[in-house]
Measured scan of single mutants.
Amino acid sequence: TYTFKVDNKDQAKKAAKWAKKLGLSFQIEKHGDTFKITVQ
Rank of each mutant, 00 (worst) to 15 (best):
T1F: 11
H31C: 15
D33W: 05
D7F: 14
K30H: 06
D10M: 13
K21H: 08
Y2R: 07
T3S: 10
I28T: 02
V6P: 01
K13V: 10
G32E: 07
K20T: 09
I37K: 00
G23M: 05
K14Y: 09
G23H: 06
Q27W: 13
K30Y: 06
Q40W: 15
K13G: 05
D10H: 14
S25C: 10
K5D: 10
V39H: 01
K14H: 07
Y2L: 09
D7Y: 14
V6A: 05
I28G: 01
Q40G: 12
V39F: 08
L24Q: 02
K5R: 09
V6Q: 01
K21M: 11
Q11G: 07
T3R: 05
E29N: 05
T1Y: 13
G32R: 05
D33G: 09
L24P: 00
Q40D: 07
E29L: 06
Q11H: 08
K5P: 05
Q27M: 12
K21Q: 09
A15D: 00
F35T: 02
K20C: 14
D10W: 15
K9A: 13
T38F: 05
V6I: 06
I28Q: 02
D7R: 14
L22Y: 10
V6E: 01
V6S: 03
K17F: 09
Q27L: 11
Y2S: 03
L22H: 13
Q27N: 10
T38Y: 05
L24C: 09
I28E: 02
T3C: 15
D7G: 12
L24W: 07
Q40N: 11
I37D: 00
G23Q: 04
A12Y: 04
A19G: 02
G23R: 05
N8K: 05
K20G: 04
N8G: 10
K20Q: 10
I28K: 03
F4P: 02
F26I: 13
F26R: 00
H31D: 15
K36T: 14
T1M: 11
F26Q: 00
L22T: 04
T34I: 14
Q11D: 11
V6L: 10
K17G: 06
V39W: 05
K13S: 08
Y2V: 07
K21I: 07
K36Y: 15
V39T: 03
K30R: 12
K5G: 06
A16M: 12
K36E: 12
T38M: 06
I37G: 00
K36G: 03
G32V: 03
K30L: 07
I37V: 10
A19D: 00
G32M: 05
F35P: 00
F35D: 00
V6W: 04
A15V: 15
S25I: 11
A16S: 06
A19Y: 10
A19K: 00
A12E: 01
Q11C: 15
L24S: 02
E29A: 07
K17Y: 10
F26H: 03
L22G: 02
K5L: 15
T1N: 09
K13T: 08
K17E: 11
K9G: 06
K5Q: 14
K13Y: 10
H31M: 14
T1A: 11
I28P: 00
G32A: 05
K13W: 10
T38L: 05
A12R: 04
T38K: 05
A16R: 12
S25P: 07
G23L: 03
T3N: 04
